[in-house]
Amino acid sequence: MEMQIETAFTLWASLAGGVLIGLSAVMVMALFGRIAGIAGITQGALGGVIPMSGAARDRDWRWTFLLGLLAAPVLVLMAGSQVAQSVPTNLPAMVLAGLLVGIGTALGSGCTSGHGVCGLARLSRRSLAATLTFMAAGFLTVFLLRHVVGG
């Protein structure tokens, strides 16, 4: 990978951010009775635009949830804070990455939030299997790209 930037270990900020993500998952369960999986929420919202098999029908809150997700960085910037970010600049690789993430989370019925956070919170063995699989694939991919191909 062309981009290798050192990042600092942010224990407390990451833990606090994780608690907020968990809180949002609890809100979605307590209010709407649903799993807060971003892939699933996006699929459900997308089902309102193009025909999609298996997409959820309760689209009202899904659309506004996504708007809230988009509003978050805007609010942070308006409050005068920075959002530290470095996104890989290899655009063909990012297209491939996006396609794989989309296909994979649709086929595997969940992403980091759906299987990782919500599934583990439900103690689902199916979600644990998915989480271990995508983590292993992620570790292996970065190892190959950074230390074998790019080494």
Binding site: M1, I38, A39, T42, L66, L69, L70, A72, P73, V87, P88, A93, M94, L96, A97, G98, L99, L100, V101, G102, I103, G104, T105, A106, L107, G108, S109, C111, T112, S113, H115, R126, A129, A130, T131, T133, F134, M135, A136, A137, G138, F139, L140, T141, V142, L145
Partner: peptide, 24 residues
């Protein structure tokens, strides 16, 4: 489940984005 999770993990490892962070 397992094929999808593996494909997702490969894409995650290439781009560093999963669905939530990419949208936000």
């Amino acid at each position: 489940l397992l094929t999808g999770a593996a494909l997702f993990g490969i894409g995650w490892g290439i781009g560093g984005f999963c669905p939530g962070p990419a949208l936000t």
